[in-house]
């Protein structure tokens, strides 16, 4: 199985998710971006869309309102204004 990296999603009200993932696809403002472990450092803003998280066990997805993503030191941080419940 591929390497995993730390992944967390924070919103103003709560820390929505905090865990390990092997692949995360986020809706970047200029197009979807996929993250694997050891991705280059990047900061980007998000558009409204779906984040897909793949970990060793399963695949999860949820929708975010606009926000920002930062990847550095093998850590993916998603700062979102809100999680849109389905």
């Amino acid at each position: 199985m591929s390497d995993s990296f730390n992944f967390s999603v924070v919103t103003p009200e709560q820390t929505y998710l905090d865990g390990e993932a092997s692949m995360v696809v986020v809706p970047g403002i200029e197009g979807d971006i996929g993250f694997l472990a050891n991705h280059a450092n990047i900061i980007t803003s998000l558009r409204l869309g779906t984040i897909v998280v793949t970990s060793d066990k399963d695949t999860n997805s949820f929708n975010v309102e606009k926000g920002f993503v930062k990847f550095s030191e093998n850590k993916l941080l998603v700062v979102a204004e809100g999680i849109v419940s389905e």
């Binding site: 200029e30 971006i33 900061i43 980007t44 803003s45």
Partner: peptide
């Protein structure tokens, strides 16, 4: 850091 779109836009 890489920026997408640009630093100032973000």
């Amino acid at each position: 850091f890489e920026f997408e779109p640009g630093e100032s836009e973000i």
